[in-house]
Simulated assay, not measured.
Amino acid sequence: MDTILVTGALGQIGSELTPTLRNRYDKVEVVASDLDPDPGVSPPYEPVDVTDRSQIESVVEEYDVDTVFHLAALLSAAGEQNPGRAFEVNVEGLHNVLEVGREYGLNRIVVPSSIAVYGPATPDNPSERTIRTPTTMYGITKVLAENLGTYYHQQYDLDVRGIRLPGIVSHETRPDGGTTDYAVDAFYEAVDEGEYTYFVREDTRLPMVYMSDAIDALIDLAGADESDLRFQCEYNISALSFTASELSDRIEERIGRFDARYEPDERQSIADSWPSTLDDTAARTDWGWSAEYDLDRVVDEMVQNLQRGAE
């Protein structure tokens, strides 16, 4: 990797992946990009709308990009509010990146997928090739993304690879538009207000991962030897699995009184359609995936950092 382009660099993952890449690869230029024309982030930064192929081409040409971490996407709950825009960004945007990758001979494109590719017909603890029956536009677009990546690899020998991310927990940037947002919002509200109303039931259990583990997974997969990979864009990774009430109990242990309420809304049906655990044997075997953070360590890190920030 000589020059990396990160699309969606202002989002929850991109805002932490970009500086991590810059710190880890001091001889590699990392170009951040997103929709905001002037976000005030460290350069190099270029405004890019991934639905406009010419904008992607312009940045790839100017910086001689050879690797892309393609993070630009509309998430699950936000996608249900505007399914047409979700399809445009998540599918047409990826197609533009893949076409630029094919035309300019990029070395590698890393594009995250999601547990949203699964659905009600998927049994719990699914592996990579378990049936995918998504019920959201976000999930549908991610199935298409996985298949597009595999197609471009098979037809054009373009190195496209990715992981299926579960919910991500981070104290740096609050998520916006995901079904698993409660697993982050609960921490913020607990520290700031001492209370939080979940939009899911207390027994809702979903797979999660701490941000630093998610970033390590993306970078480690990007650096893996292609000959070791049996899949392209559908590697499961799994780290944590907990219910909303288990999370509340752990938070209360750290901060004292925490008034947790549960008022499920339309996002509950999305959560119910996803598996509560994932089989990530392939990622562990093929490229050495292993999570560092368990639930107690995640809660400690989240509470300590948010309390420090509130001082």
Rank of each mutant, 00 (worst) to 15 (best):
L5Q: 01
V6T: 10
T7W: 02
T7D: 07
A9V: 02
G11Y: 03
I13F: 06
G14V: 01
E16W: 04
T18W: 02
T18D: 01
T18Q: 01
L21G: 09
L21W: 07
R22V: 07
R24N: 09
R24G: 10
K27N: 14
V28I: 14
V30F: 00
V31E: 05
S33A: 14
D34V: 03
L35D: 03
D36V: 09
D36G: 00
P37M: 03
D38M: 06
D38C: 04
P39F: 08
P39K: 10
P39L: 07
P44V: 09
E46Y: 11
D49H: 13
Q55I: 05
I56E: 08
I56L: 15
V59P: 13
E61C: 03
Y63F: 15
D64T: 05
D64Y: 02
V65Y: 07
V68S: 00
H70I: 07
L71V: 06
A73L: 10
L74G: 08
L75W: 00
E80G: 01
G84H: 11
F87P: 01
V89C: 06
N90P: 12
L94C: 06
G101P: 01
L106F: 01
V110N: 01
P112L: 00
Y118L: 11
P120V: 08
T122K: 05
T122Q: 12
T122V: 11
P123W: 03
P123S: 06
P123G: 05
N125R: 15
N125D: 15
E128L: 03
R129K: 08
R129E: 09
I131P: 00
T133D: 14
T141I: 05
V143P: 05
N147H: 12
L148F: 09
L148Q: 10
G149K: 06
G149R: 08
Y151F: 14
H153N: 15
Q155H: 09
V160E: 11
I163W: 11
I163H: 11
R164F: 08
L165D: 04
G167L: 00
I168R: 03
V169C: 00
S170V: 05
E172V: 15
T173F: 06
G177K: 02
G178S: 13
T180R: 02
Y182N: 14
A183Q: 04
V184I: 13
E189S: 13
V191I: 15
E193P: 00
G194P: 08
T197L: 02
Y198V: 01
R201D: 15
R205C: 00
V209K: 01
Y210M: 13
L218I: 03
I219W: 06
I219F: 05
G223N: 12
G223R: 04
A224N: 07
D225H: 07
D225F: 05
S227Y: 00
D228F: 04
L229S: 08
R230Y: 12
F231H: 15
Q232H: 13
Y235E: 05
N236K: 03
S238W: 10
S241N: 15
F242T: 13
A244Y: 04
S245K: 13
L247D: 07
S248L: 06
S248W: 01
S248M: 02
E252T: 13
I255A: 11
S273W: 00
P275S: 05
T281C: 02
R284Y: 12
R284I: 06
T285N: 15
D286L: 07
D286H: 14
W289V: 10
E292R: 12
E292M: 07
L295A: 14
L295V: 12
D296F: 05
V299T: 02
L306G: 10
Q307I: 03
G309Y: 11
G309L: 07
E311R: 15
